[in-house]
Design a protein around this nucleic acid. Sequence first.
DNA 1: CTAGTTGCAAAGAGTTTGCATGGCG
DNA 2: CGCCATGCAAACTCTTTGCAACTAG
Lengths: 132, 132
Amino acid sequence: MSRYMTKQRKAMIGYLSRHADEELSAKQIEAALNGEGISISAVYRNLSDLEQEGKIRRLSKSGSREVFYLYTDAHECKDSLHLSCEKCGKTYHMNVTGAEMLVKSLAANDEFTIDKSSTVLYGVCKACKEKK
Amino acid sequence: MSRYMTKQRKAMIGYLSRHADEELSAKQIEAALNGEGISISAVYRNLSDLEQEGKIRRLSKSGSREVFYLYTDAHECKDSLHLSCEKCGKTYHMNVTGAEMLVKSLAANDEFTIDKSSTVLYGVCKACKEKK
DNA sequence: CTAGTTGCAAAGAGTTTGCATGGCG
DNA sequence: CGCCATGCAAACTCTTTGCAACTAG
C-alpha cells in the first residue's frame, strides 16, 4: 500500500512512533508537524494506508465527532484489551490473563462474545489518579 | 431544560422508548419519524436536551464519524457495563456482579479505574451468533 | 523516466446556529 | 399572550476526492 517513503510519510511515522499509545486526531498530527510541512490530506491518506497495513488503529471517542488514531506495536495488542485514560489520553494494555478471564466469563454467563480489537475501556490511569 | 412538550418531542420520546437499548443516529431518528414531521435540527436539539437530562447517552462508534444515541432506563445502567452488539446494534447490560468483578480486578492489578458510564464493550450477542 | 504522493481547493457528510414563525401552557 | 421550540438555510467541522505538479526509486 505504501511504496515510496516520502519525507512527509517519514515525518509522520517518526512522530507517531514517538507518541505511540496516545490517541491523536488528524489535526493534532498535522499541527505537530507544521515545521516539516505536511498537508492535512496527506495526513489522512497516510493514516488510512497505515491503518490498512495494520500499524494504526482508528477509534472514535465517545461523544466526539473527531476520530482518533492509535499507533502501537501490533504484537502487544493482539490478545489484550485496551484501556484508555480519559485524563492523559494514553493507552494501556490490560494484562492478557485478565482480558481472557473477562472474555471467557462473558462468553459463559452472558453469552456475549467480545471483539477485542474494537473494544476500548475508558477510565483513569494510576499516574493521573495520583496527580489529582 | 425542556419545558414544553411539543408534538415533535413527544414523537421522538415515543420512538426512542420503543427502541430503547438500540444505537440510533440522528438521521435514523429523523427518517423513522418522517411520517410525523420533524426537522433534523429539532432532532439534534431534543437529543442534546435529553442527554443533559440524563435520559440519553451519546456515543461514537469506532471508525465512524456519525454519533449514536442510546436511550435506556437510567436505573438499570447505573452500575452495569454496556455491551453493544456489532451485528444488530442492540445494547445489553453486563450483570452487575460481573461488572464489579472486572472493575475491581483492574483497580487492584492494573491500577486503572474504569469509568462505567463512558465504556462500551463491543462484540456479538447470542442471538446474532446463532443467526449466522 | 514513471508511477506513487503531495498540495490545493472543491465536494461531502454530520452537526450546530441565527432568525423569523408557530404553538404549548 | 409570552416564551420556548420548530423549520429552514446558512455556517461549521471533519474527512474525502479530483487533478495537476512533484519526486522517490
